[in-house]
């Protein structure tokens, strides 16, 4: 079953609900039912956080290594350099999200302006 499997106008909405909304919401509801019955620092929650973090990291990698559209027109070294540069400055200057985001953008723009 794919996003464009059927021609019905409502199919993509159903697809979005089943493939995206429900798999996200079940964890929130599970949290509501399990609260108070489970230790939030328990060992298997550490495992869960590791897997969830790994998945988001894979999404980040896709933006840098295999982007679509406009970002794909920029060379890999520029995307990598801006990402690592921004993140490095973020780590070095007291871990402010805004600083990291801003510096990554500044590096990306400077790279585009200088070399393209």
């Amino acid at each position: 079953m794919f996003y464009d499997s059927y021609d019905f106008w409502w199919w993509p909405f159903v697809f979005i609900l089943i493939a995206g909304a429900v798999p996200t919401a079940i964890w929130r509801w599970a949290g509501v039912f399990l609260v108070g019955n489970m230790d939030e620092t328990s060992e298997w929650l550490v495992f869960i956080r590791c897997v969830a973090t790994g998945l988001v990291a894979a999404v980040i990698a896709q933006f840098v290594f295999n982007p679509t559209g406009t970002l794909a027109e920029l060379p890999l070294w520029l995307r990598l350099g801006a990402a690592f540069g921004g993140f490095g400055i973020f780590l070095a200057t007291g871990r402010h999200v805004f600083v990291g985001v801003l510096m990554a953008e500044v590096l990306l723009l400077s790279g585009m302006w200088l070399f393209m």
């Binding site: 079953m1 493939a19 995206g20 798999p23 996200t24 599970a30």
Partner: peptide, 24 residues
Amino acid sequence: SLFAIAPAVALAAIRMMPMTMALI
């Protein structure tokens, strides 16, 4: 396919559970 996307979304969204549990 739906069967590849839904598990990936579900795994990435697991963090919603401890987050909800901490907030409540």
